[in-house]
Design a protein around this nucleic acid. Sequence first.
DNA 1: ATTCTGGAACTAGCG
DNA 2: TACGCTAGTTCCAGA
Length: 858
Amino acid sequence: MKSADEETYSYTPNISLSLSMRSPCLPTQYHNLQTSPSISVSVSQPSSFSPSEDMGSMGYYQSSGPNGAPALESPRIEITAYGQFPEDEVEENNAPVAKRVNSVVTLTLPSGEGYRDPSCLSPASSISSRSCHSEASSYESGYSCNYDNSPQNSPWQSPCVSPKGSSSLLSGTLGTSPRQSPTGSPRTSVTEESWMALRGSRSNSPCAGKRKYSFSGNASHKYHPYSPNQSPGLSPQTSPRLSMTEDTWLPNTNQYTNSAIVAAINALSTDGMTDIGEGIPLKTRKTSMEHSTSVSMKIEPGGEETGSAELCHEDYNSSRLAFKKEGYTSFLDVPHHPYWSKPKPYISPTLPALDWQLPSSSGPYSLQIEVQPKSHHRAHYETEGSRGAVKALAGGHPIVQLHGYMESEPLTLQLFIGTADDRLLRPHAFYQVHRITGKTVSTPSHEIMQANTKVLEIPLLPESNMRAIIDCAGILKLRNSDIELRKGETDIGRKNTRVRMVFRVHINQPNGRTVSLQVASNPIECSQRSAQELPLVDRQSVDSCPATGGEHMLISGHNFQPDSKVVFVEKGQDGHHIWEMEAKVEKDSFKPTALLVEIPTYRNQRISSPVLVNFYICNGKRKRSQSQRFTYLPCNVPTIKTEPHDDYELPRLCALQHSSGLTKPYYALQAVPAMMPSEHRACVTAAYGPQRLTAKPSSPSCSSSSPSTSPNLQDLSPTQFSPQCLSPGSNTGLQPSAIPHVSAIQPTPGRYQQPVLYPSGSASSSPGSHPSTPSSAPELIFTPSHSLTQSPVTGEATEMPKVPLRSGPSPLLQEEGTPATLAISIKQEPQELDQMYLDDVNEIIKNDLSSISVHTHA
DNA sequence: ATTCTGGAACTAGCG
DNA sequence: TACGCTAGTTCCAGA
């Protein structure tokens, strides 16, 4: 029998959308929230399911935030004039004052999770989108519009808390909303309040830039005093969305039903939504669309009750409208493209959240990136035109292929932009995939929004050997200010400019279950500046050698300088440097793209087991490459690099094989939990642990963790890390409570066992829901990157090691003691937390903390 | 006329 | 308070 978890996991449509049911899905505290009819989607499942269901639903619901932020929290939209939900308050109560203040009103929205990046979609999509609007022909056009509905555009994305500005907190109150993203993206709908607040924030400030001169005259309109109605970037007229004010917006929210229906109908009857949209203010459209999804759900509740997976799918497909909350993908199918028009087998409302860690291979299937993207790709801002599709190193574009799939049914390859730090892979808060269209693009695609993350769907056709050339994906940069101000967002954008392209595929099994695979690309530096200044390592000729060193290693990459230094570092668990040694660089062989170094002798030549260290290239004070892994082997051991390869791949490689790496290790881990390094365990714990810190007492510690000391975890590549995290709760001291619900995904018949497990619930939301977890949870647990709390706190997990204080509180405590809400979210550190960044990060954190504390007391 | 790009100007925050 | 630096964001201009 399958565990409840498993059930949950099988995407089988046990899920029926019934409004009435929702409450069960949510944690009690949130029940009320759910009430908002339009939004809530409940899963009606067999009684047996309820547990899992809850978990599952919850998982989707809550954890959904790419950030892992519990949907519930995220969903809050702060809108001035709307009704309030007591529940929220509850949540908020725990939360720091600051936070509470911010949110004036909370709404549970369909895309609630979207809270996270409201801007993302819309702005991006819309703009980028030109795609959306411009291409009437693309099947996607419709979709994109739809996606817009994501909260992002909506006013709600209230930024309430400015990271630093204390004032912001206060401003949180409606009228004052502080800095909303000032600009939110221009196209983002902004409320008046938000606009008013705009000025001020630092880089955020939309004003920052040069609009001044450039726009003589117009400029003022565009970015300036933003009249509420105007969109920062665009003249009101230009962008419809802008034209909408909150007032207009709100009503829509409430009435979305009608409009949504209309929109849906139109969508169905029209090839593209483009037309529809034309006459309607974008915002309006958005809103309506958004709801439309929900509407669609409402419409068919009855039919879906059957609960049979197939049925559900069918219904789903037939309706062509799918709504995905968190986990659910909002999808408006447009009949255009042959591929898209046909039902997609895997599409299910219960797909794993984007922040869940999935293996790249399972059983016979293996999802691989045949051609990696270039390490640099300058992302474009909404205010800019597209900067094109991500390219491959050798020209051309990245290529992804699914191996082992022999069916004739086409599948859909999903692509989203994920983080590239050493923490668990999750959707990147500051970047979104951007659909590229045009003559140069050969691969069809369309966008959908999933938990506030834009996901590009690309057909994987048997006739093409399940191989897709990714020439339709660009990267959009969202303003840091827009994202950071978002409630629940804990990541910081500053210096967080590295991303990975994350590919997923969901394969339906005969038994009705779905196998989900995921693979992430090598890191891609998206910042112009960073790309030009930071040394970047693409490859290293060797990744291990005897402790005696002396061997030469050829490092290839970019931005190397004659005086570049290569420093080997070993860090302790606390993140402190235990050993640091500069390698001798062969100046003679210097090239901007290659450095030949002599591997230094390890501090202890008598090691009995491989020692993982790191090295980085330094071009100067703040110009260091990401840490690269290197392993010293016991001298007496015959050089067999049996290696560490798997375990310690180069980051880049890791990314590549991320999934695969995952897979292997994870099997191994199952058997040997005990073997898990303590630190790893910590990771695990951390992963589930309190993502948010209650107050940021840790700040000091953070600082203490001197820049030089980067957390161990940082060094862990996703590959390594994941597996660890995957380890069963049983191992190590993972406490059940700490473990979110875990559901197992279908083991496919045959040999490979339960390949994928998904944590369904967000820990935070379900403090008590551990029940099924451990026991039912099979061997692996794929952790959501941000498990517990609302946001992508994931980072915290990694940080923990270095910050004693933070790590101090056991996950349990936090979890149980007070729901995630209590904690104040802390901005995550930038990607890899490279030391070079630590300074900045620490500073930022300090600032945040100080400001927060101030607010709190205020 | 657009879309891509590469470069660089501007700005805010910080020390 | 002015200055310099850093990094994010916005513009410009050429292909």
